Amino acid sequence: MAKITLRVVRKPNLMKKKHTSISVKEITKASFETALPKKPSADNVTLDGGRINSSSWVKLLLLGTGAYGSVYLGTSKSKTHHTGDRAIKTAEISHASSLMDEGRIMIRLQSPFIVRCYGDEIAREGYSTQYNLILEYCSGKTIADLIEDNHGELLESEAKVFARDVLSGLTYIHDRNIVHCDIKPDNLLLSPTAVRFRSTGYLTKIGDFGLAMEKGSVEYGNGYGHKRGTTRYMSPELIGHGFVDFGADVWAFGCTVLEMLSGATVWGEYGDLAFDDWVNLIGHSDRMPHVPAWLSKEALDFLSRCLERDVNKRWSTLELKNHPFVLL
């Protein structure tokens, strides 16, 4: 599966290691057909007149790379309608099925807490044909960068603001039956804004929907058989039994808030494990991520609601939005 993860190119992180997203998803032409509009597949591209035009965008700077594609800072070629910089997520057309699925989800999401998708294109670039997804460019990097730049934990007051933003974004997509499946600090992008609107100076936006699933789609089925995400952020029911539901996002969100508050990588005391070891640790043991005792009572209680092993007892995003930890 073509999984492209937005990565901001920066100096090596000495505090934590990169975490790779995985998926056992099989791309089929039936994916999302019950809920989303039809789009051309990577294997059957047809355009008006049979012509494939050159891209409408100039790629200025490589922002990150993935296994099957790249993300560039881009600007429009149009001299009459300057739209500002965009992030161009691109893959060679024969490897673009996953990116197309991502575009089909993102293009209908309109929330200030979700990275905006402005459309897509199939374009001839050099000797290859590329599928380009045109996204909002968030110049403030990511939550992962912010943790690194602060050499560890963020102030609790800052973490609360970021957490509220992410909860708003998650509530929005869950209301639309979408499970993100890969919430983590690297996929939470920061968009600079006036301090009078956000004390941190940033608005947090959820990005990278490459592993997202829509409940009710053919691909989703009954929710089982989908081990996908970044291992150390996967919930017990997801990594242990392959069950995808909204609770998986809540668990991953709890791991992310824990990293913001503690400055330490979740499950970091176990180092880098093989996949089967992650399954045993998270999915089939009674162990929990280490939560520092010095956190405030509100923070400790909030994390306990997110990091609940029993998915039926784990709080929803709506419940979490009313928790004292994130209330203004």
Rank of each mutant, 00 (worst) to 15 (best):
M260G: 11
G268E: 07
I239P: 09
G210N: 05
H241V: 06
G225H: 11
L261P: 12
F243L: 15
D208L: 02
T230H: 07
A264F: 08
F209A: 09
G210S: 07
F253P: 12
A274V: 05
H241A: 13
E214N: 10
Y220K: 08
I239C: 07
M260D: 13
N222E: 07
S235F: 05
V250D: 10
V244P: 06
F209W: 08
G216M: 03
Y233S: 01
K227Y: 02
V266G: 01
S262W: 01
V218W: 06
Y220W: 15
S235H: 07
D249W: 09
L238P: 02
E219M: 11
G242Q: 03
F246H: 15
W251P: 08
G268A: 11
W267I: 00
S235L: 04
T230A: 13
S217M: 06
G268S: 12
V244F: 05
V244A: 13
A274D: 14
F209M: 03
V257G: 06
L238T: 13
T230G: 08
L273Q: 14
E214I: 13
G254Q: 02
G221W: 14
F209E: 10
S217R: 05
K215F: 03
F209G: 06
G225A: 11
Y220A: 06
V257K: 00
D249F: 13
H241F: 15
N222I: 04
A212E: 02
G216V: 06
G254N: 05
K215T: 03
R232K: 08
F209L: 11
E214M: 14
G210W: 03
D249A: 10
V266R: 02
K227A: 02
E237K: 04
V257E: 06
G247V: 07
D249C: 13
R228T: 14
Y220H: 15
N222H: 10
G229M: 00
F209I: 00
L273N: 10
G271V: 13
Y220G: 04
T265W: 00
L211V: 01
W267E: 02
G210K: 00
G225N: 07
F253M: 15
Y224M: 09
D208M: 01
V244N: 04
V266N: 05
L238S: 15
L258F: 01
R232Y: 01
V218C: 12
Y270T: 05
A264H: 13
H241E: 14
D272V: 14
T256D: 09
Y270H: 15
G254C: 07
G247Q: 15
G242D: 11
